[in-house]
């Protein structure tokens, strides 16, 4: 996985895990890889992974079983909310870049419908 160099890496790790959870690669109730495994897989520092997982624990999307590791929440409302946030994020980015290209919000609607046909 390639990181953007000018965004804090712990935020990018969170994004990466959110996406895995929302796309179902990590299922509700499933154990996620250990901190060190994730660190090696992403070639990042263990401290950074820990920071990301801690925040996700606070948010409730992950929960910790003592001595066993971190698990994905089974709270469907929360999962749904996370998915919605990801969608909003992507839409935001899309609209932003369309605006940058000089496409107004009204035009986006038409362009998108045309494109999807």
């Amino acid at each position: 996985m390639e990181f953007k160099d000018n965004i804090p890496i712990y935020l990018q790790i969170k994004q990466y895990l959110y996406r895995q959870i929302v796309t179902g690669e990590l299922k509700p109730g499933q154990k996620i890889p250990s901190v060190r495994e994730l660190a090696v897989q992403l070639t990042v520092n263990v401290n950074t992974v820990q920071r990301a997982l801690q925040q996700m624990n606070v948010e409730g999307i992950l929960y910790t079983k003592r001595g066993e590791g971190n698990f994905v929440t089974e709270d469907t409302d929360l999962l749904e909310k996370t998915k919605q946030e990801l969608i909003d994020d992507e839409l935001n980015k899309f609209v932003q870049s369309m605006n940058d290209l000089g496409v107004s919000n009204d035009q986006i609607h038409d362009i998108l419908s045309a494109y999807l046909k």
């Binding site: 990181f3 890496i9 990042v44 520092n45």
Partner: peptide, 9 residues
Amino acid sequence: VNEIASMLD
């Protein structure tokens, strides 16, 4: 630095 940037504290 770019080769190792991602793992640094």
